[in-house]
Write a protein that binds this DNA or RNA. Structure first.
Lengths: 238, 238
DNA sequence: ACCTGAACACCGTTCAAGT
DNA sequence: ACCTGAACACCGTTCAAGT
């Protein structure tokens, strides 16, 4: 049936189609399933065909990162710096939640991609427009670190688990085993202490969104204080 | 020469000797050079011999992480919570600088190792002894995130580059190319603004230690303020 | 000129054969 | 019983042969 074969080969291969398929594969099956060979098969193509559009796997990853970063909302106009930064970072966080493989991928690549540079540049612009000196803006960007891209920076992030089931896996938070609780009593205590008065969380397990915003506001409030004080790196008023 | 062969086989293989050799290999040649086969060769042993002491490569990585975390200084007694936390985290940071592969390795493993749990437990203990409620201590631990282990959490960390030359590579900070500076003027501006009055830094490039302590103190100062206010998650005084 | 199958140099790990 | 060589099922990428 030659017509069916025609249909299978679909649209011709392009860099864009490769990147989108790679992102979809990493989203759905986990980043560890993303091999040049698997990706080619997904596209109904021989592995070597990919190399016409991406130089190698590292460049593929860079392209995937740019696709993800491109999903972050553009800055809103006419908003004070603090809300502008806050909303943009929370948008970045929503994007990363759709692509749980992205944080590790971004951290393991050590060159900034064009889309990331554009995002960072625009974020610095928001600080500068908000009255920050270039000096303070510099240190503030460092202080935000990868949180500026929505990374929750947890030591152990359940959402990062590269399970094959992707979004279909609710993964109930495992209550920590009794022998662990006995050996590490302080950890057991704070595990129980989380939002016990919040009906939406049953006590075990954390509200990721709450924790992210808690840390974000802690930083933004401290940053606002420095700005008001006219902080400089050579002379720190206290 | 049978005696020389005897010498070559040295001390008998043990889990500890494997872990130390693995850490040394990752430190010296980069984490990408750490394969079961390479490690075995380094130890003058057939690859399969390793599997008598570690179940698989993931368990090897967990063991390496525990070796690294074990190098962090124990908590000092008779110090106020803020200085206790600060010094311990700066110690962790020094450790990570000796093992640049460790941050990514820790983040890619998603189970806490015993050594990490002990470290975190002890850190929570310091907060609790300093007068923090279990509730606030919980959120504070989340807010510190992986910074609590000394991660600098930069988006692009030159020190993380897994170069083969290890510590022998000073790697002068590349001044950002003019066409990048033109496309991202805000980034160019803050790149120049860094510690221009500090003689030890030539203008280009950042003082990692300064940036780390800047962010750390920003967090610790904000945390101290919450503690003084008697912050709780159900009722936030402002 | 373009495309692509086979090949190369690696992986982690299984397994059966050897001692 | 222990140890280990060969084998298996993968990688990313090169390269030469085919169209």
């Amino acid at each position: 049936m030659p017509e069916q074969a025609e249909t299978l080969r679909r649209t011709p291969l392009s860099r864009d189609r490769i990147l989108r398929a790679a992102v979809a594969l990493a989203d759905g099956a986990g980043i560890e399933s993303l091999s040049m060979r698997n990706l080619a098969q997904e596209l109904g193509v021989v592995p070597m065909a990919l190399y016409k559009h991406v130089a190698n796997k590292d460049e593929l990853l860079d392209g995937m990162i740019d696709v993800v970063v491109g999903e972050i909302d553009p800055p809103e106009p006419d908003v004070d710096w603090k809300n502008a930064v806050r909303r943009r970072i929370l948008s970045a966080r929503q994007v990363l939640r759709r692509h749980p493989w992205a944080p590790l991928a971004i951290e393991s690549r050590n060159m900034a991609t064009p889309a990331i540079l554009a995002y960072l540049n625009s974020m610095v612009g928001t600080f500068r427009a908000g009255g920050f000196s270039a000096d303070l803006a510099h240190h503030v960007m460092h202080a935000m670190g990868s949180r500026i891209l929505g990374f929750s920076q947890e030591l152990f992030d359940a959402s990062r688990r590269a399970g094959r089931s992707g979004a279909t896996d609710p993964e109930p938070p495992a209550p920590l085993p009794p022998e662990i609780a006995a050996r590490f009593p302080h950890l057991a205590e704070i595990a129980m202490a989380a939002s016990h008065d919040d009906a939406s969380v049953v006590g075990q397990g954390c509200d990721d969104q709450f924790e992210f915003e808690f840390a974000l506001d802690l930083l933004l409030d401290g940053i606002e204080r420095l700005r008001q004080q006219g902080w400089t790196s050579s002379h720190r008023p206290r």
